[in-house]
Design a protein around this nucleic acid. Structure first.
Length: 232
DNA sequence: ACCCAGGCGCATG
DNA sequence: CATGCGCATGGG
């Protein structure tokens, strides 16, 4: 019995609709104060084990102080940065992490994100993982949502869902679960469609976990149970 | 008063 | 290798 990830995508999209997570369109006008790609990078760090509503407050605060740029965060005094991101919690660690990646992007890539992302995907991922505060999920979120790289993001929700669905993989291995999603989705979608599919499916899984799978102890009582069985 | 949120680093056994 | 714990805030 094998469940198909592309059916999971169809089902969830049909049931919940688009989730509008981070902007799909990276049109960047100079009239804009901050590069949306950098905003996504900052958001990816601020949202670590933190409700998105709190992250928005911190992002707004950074924007209002015109501080949402690589150069600004790299040069800002730590205490000032901590105050600006305070509502997102864990501000001591997060301020340090934001300064680490900002200084890195400034020092190694002259704050040029196009240059940073232009290289081999695996290379960029390895570099990100080497920075303090960037683990697999944060690195992959940055690659997918900011860099438009075809990488599927695994998070606690995806593991929880995967534990309940009959996926032929061990749900506790990040790499194995990621390979499973990527391989199965690659079979259905052409390469140039993978990025939007990966973005939307990850957001939809989060939505599913929050609305249904979080509150019920097992699939037996899940409101999506009948739909889920269509995927088998 | 609890529990949780779009994790990660570090310390233990 | 694999758990466990601290990190901090705001909303339900």
């Amino acid at each position: 019995m094998v469940i198909r990830t592309e059916k999971l995508y169809d089902l969830l999209l049909d049931h919940f609709g688009h989730q509008h997570w981070w902007p799909v369109d990276h049109t960047y006008h100079k009239t804009q104060e901050s590069d949306p790609r950098f905003e996504i990078i900052v958001g990816a760090i601020l949202t670590q084990n933190t409700a998105w509503s709190n992250v928005e407050k911190a992002l707004d605060s950074l924007k209002q102080h015109r501080a949402l740029t690589i150069e600004s965060i790299a040069s800002m005094k730590p205490q000032v940065l901590k105050n600006l991101i305070q509502p997102s919690g864990f501000f001591n660690q997060k301020a340090h992490r934001l300064k680490t990646i900002s200084s890195y992007l400034l020092g190694e890539y002259q704050a040029n994100l196009s240059l940073f992302f232009s290289r081999d995907m695996a290379t960029v991922r390895t570099e990100l993982l080497g920075l303090n505060g960037i683990g697999p999920e944060t690195a992959d979120s940055i690659l997918l949502y900011a860099g438009d790289k075809p990488v599927f993001v695994i998070d606690a929700y995806t593991r929880r869902i995967s534990r309940r669905l009959p996926f032929p993989v061990s749900w506790d291995s990040y790499d194995e679960l990621q390979q499973f999603f990527e391989h199965t989705l690659q079979k259905k979608y052409p390469a140039n469609h993978l990025v939007p599919v990966y973005k939307e499916l990850h957001a939809l899984i989060v939505k599913l976990a929050k609305t249904s799978c979080r509150t019920v102890p097992s699939c037996d009582n899940c409101p999506l149970r009948r739909s889920c069985q269509k995927m088998l």
